[in-house]
C-alpha cells in the first residue's frame, strides 16, 4: 500500500477510535446513558466495561497516531482528535442520542430507575 493511503487509513482509524472512546466514556454517566438507552443507569459491570473500553480506545488511537506521524506531530493530532470527538459526542447527545446506542448494543440493559 502506498504511504499516503496507509497514513490516511491509520489516521481515519485513530479518529474513529477517539470517537468510540469518547462515546464510551460519556455513557458511564447516568444522564447520558439515559439519553441513549431507555433505562436509568448502566449496571456496575457495564460502567467498568465502558470505562475500560473508552480508555483503551483512546490509548489505541494514540498508538495509531504515533504510527502515522512523526512523534512530535502525533500528540497534536491525537489531542485534537479527542477535542473534535468530544464536540461531536456532545452534539450527538443533544440532537441524535439514539444513534450512539449502536456503540453499546453489546451491553446488557441497565438498572431501572427506583
Amino acid at each position: 500500500m502506498p504511504d499516503a493511503a496507509l497514513g490516511a487509513l491509520l489516521l481515519s482509524a485513530a479518529v474513529a477510535l477517539a470517537v468510540c472512546g469518547m462515546v464510551w466514556l460519556a455513557l458511564t454517566m447516568d444522564t447520558h446513558w439515559q439519553q441513549v438507552r431507555v433505562d436509568a443507569a448502566p449496571t456496575r459491570s457495564a460502567t467498568v466495561a465502558l470505562r475500560l473500553c473508552g480508555s483503551l480506545a483512546l490509548f489505541a488511537s494514540l498508538l495509531l497516531c504515533l504510527r502515522a506521524d512523526h512523534p512530535t506531530m502525533a500528540p497534536l493530532v491525537w489531542v485534537l482528535s479527542i477535542t473534535g470527538a468530544a464536540v461531536g459526542v456532545a452534539f450527538a447527545l443533544a440532537w441524535r442520542p439514539r444513534w450512539l446506542a449502536l456503540l453499546v448494543v453489546w451491553l446488557p440493559a441497565g438498572r431501572s430507575a427506583n
Partner: peptide
C-alpha cells in the same frame, strides 16, 4: 508549515471553537 491536512482542519476546528 507542515504537511498534514487533517491536523490543519483540526486547527481550524480549534480556532472556530
Amino acid at each position: 508549515h507542515f504537511k498534514h491536512w487533517l491536523l490543519r482542519w483540526f486547527y481550524v476546528l480549534g480556532g472556530l471553537l
